[in-house]
Design a binder for these strands. Structure first.
Lengths: 154, 154
DNA sequence: GGTATTTCGTGCGTATACACACGACTTCCT
DNA sequence: AGGAAGTCGTGTGTATACGCACGAAATACC
């Protein structure tokens, strides 16, 4: 099988493996891998709208809503009405949410370390570059460069 | 954000982008991205059991079962009782399944090309190697302590 | 200003992903 | 042989992922 055919397969395999391991690692804390991504995204941006949160994850707005409902039940996030746009709702981490995220971050350290070691740390920057370009090409737009409110670090 | 923290994020972004794009591309043919993976796996192995099929995808046996039920309804796969093990069922592509897979393969060519171009073809082998090692490391990762649980399948 | 368009969140439907438990069957061990 | 242990497929439950359609509200346009 040539490279062109194999690339999608190994990309899928690597992601699913990471996802499974993350789910298992976070499970004792009552959080899924995807919920961790949401919390992490929230921890880096304040009072995001659901739409903007979905764009940054990246994920679908209706998926994000379902996740927020569950996280709200656990008291980890809070949804308020947007101050200037009554259609929108702003999402923020609660104190419990921030605390939980710190625990999750620590719990995930072993996975991040394992990943970095697997590819040899020297290759990380390059791999990240490739994956980023891959995502950009497939999305047809830049993940970090285009459009909307772009107020934080890149 | 350092490399260690960013790698999981871009891996996720790249996979989801590929998955979304594939779903959109295959949708006119009535097939999902994951169903394509299943059909592709079947096209490379004859009379696999559901378990073996799940292992190769890789995916969960119960997920594979649900997918097979749908694909069977479409007449693309066939499930027979295993000749020597009455617990198991062997799965094969029907003629319609093979035909559909060829169409899907062609329909997916543009995505594979786009992916290869995004990373520059010269880097493909290296990227594949990194992702493969990533998946292997994560699949063999023990949750408790420094593990020695090994995946020792063929 | 008033209307057309766009955007936001919601709700619904389908398909994955995986854990877990269960019954049926096979294999292993003695 | 016969019981114990492992394996296969099934069924159920929860959480994503995403498309689509809806009502409400903001924005654009004339």
């Amino acid at each position: 099988m040539d490279n062109k055919s194999e690339l999608p397969i190994v990309l899928r395999a690597a992601y699913l493996a990471m996802h499974r391991m993350s789910d298992a690692q976070f499970s004792p804390l009552g959080i899924t891998a995807d919920q961790f991504v949401l919390l992490a995204t929230l921890s880096r941006g304040t009072a995001l709208t659901q739409r903007e949160l979905a764009r940054r994850m990246p994920s679908d707005p209706s998926t994000v809503r379902a996740m927020l409902v569950l996280l709200e039940k656990q008291g980890l996030v809070k949804r308020d009405i947007h101050p200037s746009d009554s259609r929108a709702r702003t999402v923020t981490l609660t104190a419990a949410g921030k605390r939980k995220f710190r625990q999750l971050w620590d719990a995930g350290e072993s996975i991040r370390t394992k990943m970095l070691e697997a590819i040899q740390p020297d290759n990380a920057a390059e791999l990240i570059g490739h994956l980023t370009r891959l995502a950009e090409a497939l999305n047809g737009l830049s993940l970090y460069g285009s459009g909307l409110s772009q107020t934080d670090k890149v």
